[in-house]
Every structure is written in C-alpha cells, then in structure tokens.
Design a protein around this nucleic acid. Structure first.
Lengths: 248, 248
DNA sequence: CGGTAAGTTGAGTAGAGTCAAATTTGGTGG
DNA sequence: CCACCAAATTTGACTCTACTCAACTTACCG
C-alpha cells in the first residue's frame, strides 16, 4: 500500500507540486539536477511518528503531501504542538545532529528527503538554497511569535477562532480564492490535536466549538467539515482586527 | 548625556564586544571593512521605543549593549512579549518593509545599525552574513518554540521558575561560570515585563515569586537581586528535567 | 451489528484573574 | 542629609475561566 502512495508522487522535480514554494524554490535547472541525485521519497501513514525528539537526524526534507505536527512533551506527559507542517514546509535543521521535537504524521504523508550531510554540503555551495531556507525560517519565526500571543493572552474562545481562521485562510490561499464572506474547509486535526496546539484541554476545545456553532459563527457537518458564513465575524471572535496569524 | 553612552561604544568593529557572536561573526577583515562603511550607532534610554510595530523599518541592526524587548499588542491592550533581545541579537527582518513588533529598550541601549537597503545589497553578495543570520534565526525559532511550551502548558509557578532559570543560565554563560549549585543574578525586567513575557498578570508574578522565596527556592535582596541556592531545584520547579529553554 | 475511538456534555473544583488596598523603594528637591 | 513623592511591588478578598473527572453519544470500521 505504501507503493500506491509513492506512485502518486512525482519522480521529477519539474512535476513537483511544491516546486515553487519549498526549500528548492529558487534553484535553477542545474541546481535542481544536483538535488535530484540526493533526494528520495518516504511515505508515512497517518499516526506514524516521522522523527522522535532526541534521535539522530539522518535526513532533512520537505513535506510534499499531507500534514505533520511538531510537538514537545514534558516528562509528565503534557504536550504542546509547536508547529504545523504543511506541503512545502521544511523539516530538520542543518547543522544540528539530533531532533529537538517529535514529528508526527497527522494524515498520510509524503516527504522529499535529503541525507543530511550531502544536503549541508550542497547548501554551502548553493546560496539559492540557503537564501530560501532563511526566508522560510524567518516566516516560521513570525508564525511562532504570532502563536505566542495566542497561547499567552487569548481566551479559549479566541484561541479556537484563531485556529479556525488560520486554517481557513491557508485553505483559501491554496485554492487561490478570496477570504471574503463564506469559507468552507475540513479540519485536519482531531480535538485533542487542536487542544495540544492551543494549550487547552480537548473538553474545552469541544465546548468552545459548540459555543461558536450555537452562536452561528460556524456551521458543522459531521465533526470535521466547517462552514464559516462570515469570515470577518470569525476574525473578530479571534480578537484580530485584520489579519492575525498567517501560518504558512 | 547620549554622548556619554556613545563614547563608551567602540568605533572599530575589531574592538566590538559582540564581534564574534553577532550577525557579522563570520565576516573576514575585508567584509568587515565594507560593513564599517554602512554602520552607525544609536543609543536609546531605558523605556524608549526603538521601533513601533507597523512602522517603516529604515534600518536593521544588532544590540551592542543593554536589553530590549519584542512585543505584540492587541487592540484592547493585552500585550505579549515574543522575544528578549540581548547583546549580539539581531533586530529587523531583511526583505520586509514594515516592523511586525514593537521594540522597546528595557535598559539603556546601544545598537549597531545598518541602513536596510545597503545591508540587503551586501547580504546578497556576502554569504557569510546570510549564513550567520540563518543560524541565528534558527536559534531564535528554537527559543520561540521552547517558549510556546512554557506559555501553553506550564503553571504560573513553573513559568516563573522557567524564566528565572533562563536568566540564570544566560548570566552564567556570559560569565563563563558553571550553573552548578548556587547562582546569583539581577532581574533585568520589572514584574509587569515578566508578566508580559509569561502570559500572566503582574499580581500572579508577584505572588509566585513570593511563594518561591517562602519555599527557599530563591532568595531576594531588594526587588531585583536574586540568589538561587540550588539551581537543580529551580530546574525541577520549572518542570525541566535537565536543560529547559535556552533563550539566547 | 458490535466494538472502539472520537467527540460532547455535565457537575464540581482549582488556579489564575480582577479589583482594591497597603507597603516598599529609589530618586529628588529642599 | 533627610523628608517626600511617584512608581513598583506586595498582599488580600473575591470571581470566573478553564480544568478534572465522569457519563454519555456519535461515527467509523471490520
């Protein structure tokens, strides 16, 4: 079954769906050819752990398809999600040998991997890669800081609204549609994963979603399919005047 | 009086106290000479705002001396500190025109500034700068994620202990002393600033500090001078087994 | 059609927030 | 050098949001 997934993945960088957004975005044809030589695809099933915190990192890479989470765990089991990895996002840190976080596949996942050593060697010779990685890292830093405001200062209701607006906005970006008026999307996370992202308990997440539903801010079909009739209303509930956290 | 401060600042990069840690750390003599041409020093008094969120960023630069904070504010006034800037830390984001956060001098502050355009131009030609900036940004991203765990999952008491252990560890690093047994330092932040960092109210900060004092985890002389008799005890109170958040 | 995981809802509690004094402190002008 | 002031900090009393524990419902999968 893993092969089915692999078959769906492009063999050539030219066909790659994340070609223009990933760490390789700035590479020219020649550089891409070099990358082709050291890349390989790996597939993971939903729920599988991609990397364990503290383990040796033998590769870095990009998410091609699916969603993964970056989480930290305390000894007593308290868990905090510190990043949501979407297609084109980069995993791993050049120059560091062990992983600092758990990476877990939330959905079935395909990654484009590079063995760490050759990648680092290539990065040193190829400014285009380092430049793009810097740009992506600065974006992630902004997203992390945006999230610090959510975690530190927002109420449970605002936290949920913030998460929904981020997911909604991202979906709109991918579909190239406007975030005006009504927005529809599927939640890629369980209530528990949402709780881990928001620094809440899953019960509180559930209650606040019910409350937003009751107040007509969102509609639900099943547990995952969300309709936001008025996106500005959602943003107001999130405590953001205009555009709050852009995550990816 | 500004001149007094300026006089204390090196004119030559060679004498600079942050020479080997800042964004210029990897530059060779020639590159440094180019940087000298576009650099200038600016001093700020404690309490002064260095950059307003949303403003045009006409410069980027490094903290040379003193401490600054990076904060976000919601319309209703809730604020969250998203970074603590220490000597050698970089301010500003190449490739972005407006500031995303308020930068405020917590103590008297000296910055080594570069006009944004020339700096960006130089970065494009000088891999050493971009490399070092990538490294620093990755470190900041790790620190931000570490802090997300603190904000999202720790109790008030653990938050305070986490902040104290970070400050204690940083001081030890600067003094090249071990973080074994007893550690002594001055708090660089008011209770309110600590609260903004930790996502708490200043009253809660005060109560938890009193509680840690009562339990003998710390001793206080005046409001700012802290003695930690047993650093491991403090780490245990922070919920960290070994080394929790390293901030700088 | 049952079994299990995911999600919802309820009741009671606790930890942090709010509002309101009191107290300490560092700095200043006399 | 000392009294005084404004700001920072501490402490108290009360409230409320989000957590805990628990039962129940729903959806999905074999």
């Amino acid at each position: 079954m893993l092969n089915d997934t692999l078959t769906a993945v492009p063999r050539e960088c030219g066909d790659c769906p994340i070609r223009h957004r990933a760490v390789c975005a700035r590479c020219d044809a020649n550089e891409l050819e070099q990358l082709e030589k050291i890349k390989y695809y790996r597939s993971f099933e939903a729920g599988q752990t991609v990397v364990w915190s503290g383990d040796q990192m033998e590769f870095v890479g990009s998410v091609v398809k699916g969603i993964a989470t970056l989480t930290q765990t305390m000894e007593d089991g308290r868990t905090q999600m510190v990043g949501l990895l979407l297609p084109s996002d980069f995993v791993g840190r050049p120059g560091r040998s062990t992983a600092a976080y758990d990476v877990v596949a939330t959905t079935d996942l395909v990654m484009c991997c590079f063995r760490k050593k050759p990648f680092e060697a290539m990065m040193a010779k190829t400014p285009h890669i380092a430049q793009r990685l810097l740009e992506m890292t600065l974006d992630e830093l902004d997203a992390a800081r945006e999230w610090m405001l959510v975690l530190g200062r927002k109420t449970a209701r605002e936290k949920i609204a913030s998460l929904l607006s981020i997911i909604g906005r991202r979906n709109a970006t991918l579909n190239l549609s406007d975030v005006t008026g009504s927005v529809v999307f599927d939640l890629p996370l369980t209530r528990e994963a949402m709780a881990d992202y928001l620094g809440l308990t899953l019960e509180t997440v559930s209650r606040q979603i019910s409350s937003l539903k009751k107040d007509g801010v969102i509609h639900l079909e099943g547990k995952r399919h969300v309709t936001v009739p008025d996106f500005d209303r959602l943003l107001a509930e999130a405590g953001d005047d205009s555009d709050g956290g852009m995550l990816a």
